[in-house]
Simulated scan of single mutants.
Amino acid sequence: MQGELFGDLPGPSAARGRVAPAPGAVLLPGWLDAEAQLRLVAACREWARPPAGLHAVRMPTGGMMSVRMVSLGWHWYPYGYRSAAEDGTPVKPFPPELGSLARRAVADAYGADAGEIAGAASYEPDIAIVNHYPHGAKMGLHQDRDERIDAPVVSLSLGDACVFRLGNTETRTRPWTDLELRSGDLLVFGGPARFAYHGVVRTVAGTADPGLGLVGRLNITVRQSGLVAGAADETGVA
């Protein structure tokens, strides 16, 4: 891994280029400029408002996740999607402008190779999950397997930097690659990496640009669900 989190770069001005940590996974540092980041932070604040706003998630084991989240398009819960939020209100709609941004992200990440990645060339996202990581929050290694289609996942980082762990598709154990994700970075994973275990090992307090007015880290993940509105099945969709 490269980056100031590990102390091996000379400073913030050091160049950070495109990284492909695994087949199907692409990191584009600084993909969002300062203005785009500000717009997304403002949008996240609106999405976080009730009803169907930012909330803590209780896992089936009884424990609470250290991040808080809000869903758009479909409401995520462990482990499935439904049309209503925890408070029983309809989930907020998926914003078309976020879909346009995510389609551009997939195109920029894969370029001419998009046709070789399942779902990339015809990417039509309909879900976003916004996670807020307060200081000290993290997320254990997991797979994104609740969608009905293997189209790529788009991940946008805002605020504090984090150590993101991209693992393999079989187990939560090694091999894995640790990546530094900073505010404005884009990570797309699809194809062979679509079902890789991944998580956030730690966030680094105080690394966000103060101009964002953000405490902690925001992560926006955009996905294509493959779900049909009004259907009901074993995922809990209703």
Rank of each mutant, 00 (worst) to 15 (best):
L72Q: 05
L72C: 06
L72N: 03
L72V: 01
G73P: 11
W74C: 01
W74S: 00
H75D: 13
H75N: 13
H75C: 11
H75G: 01
W76S: 07
W76H: 12
Y77T: 06
Y77D: 05
P78T: 08
Y79K: 09
Y79C: 07
G80T: 08
G80I: 06
G80E: 06
Y81S: 05
Y81N: 02
S83T: 08
S83L: 05
A84R: 15
A84I: 10
A85E: 00
A85T: 07
A85G: 14
A85F: 04
E86A: 15
E86C: 11
D87M: 14
D87E: 14
D87Q: 14
D87F: 12
G88A: 12
G88R: 11
T89M: 15
T89N: 12
T89P: 06
T89L: 13
P90S: 10
P90H: 10
V91K: 01
V91W: 09
K92V: 00
K92D: 10
P93M: 06
P93Y: 01
P93L: 02
P93K: 09
P93H: 07
F94L: 05
P95Y: 07
P95M: 07
P96W: 00
E97I: 09
E97P: 04
E97N: 09
E97H: 09
L98G: 08
L98Q: 02
L98H: 10
G99N: 07
G99S: 02
G99L: 03
G99E: 05
R103D: 01
R104H: 04
R104L: 08
R104W: 05
R104F: 02
A105N: 02
A105V: 04
A105K: 04
V106C: 15
V106P: 15
V106A: 15
V106S: 14
A107W: 05
D108N: 13
D108C: 14
D108Y: 12
D108A: 15
D108M: 12
A109W: 07
A109E: 06
A109S: 09
Y110H: 09
G111R: 07
A112K: 09
A112V: 08
D113I: 02
A114L: 09
G115M: 03
G115V: 00
G115C: 04
E116N: 14
E116P: 03
I117C: 06
I117T: 11
A118F: 13
G119M: 04
G119Y: 05
G119H: 03
G119W: 04
A120E: 13
A120Q: 13
A120L: 13
A121D: 11
A121M: 11
S122D: 15
S122W: 06
S122F: 00
Y123V: 10
Y123K: 13
E124H: 03
P125S: 04
P125L: 04
D126R: 03
I127R: 02
I127A: 09
A128R: 00
A128I: 01
A128C: 11
A128H: 02
A128M: 01
A128W: 03
I129F: 01
N131T: 10
N131P: 07
N131S: 11
N131Y: 07
H132V: 00
H132S: 08
H132M: 05
H132G: 01
Y133E: 08
P134G: 08
P134C: 08
P134V: 03
P134Q: 09
H135T: 14
H135P: 12
A137G: 06
A137I: 09
K138P: 08
K138L: 11
K138E: 12
M139I: 13
M139T: 03
G140D: 09
G140S: 13
L141M: 14
L141G: 10
L141I: 04
L141H: 08
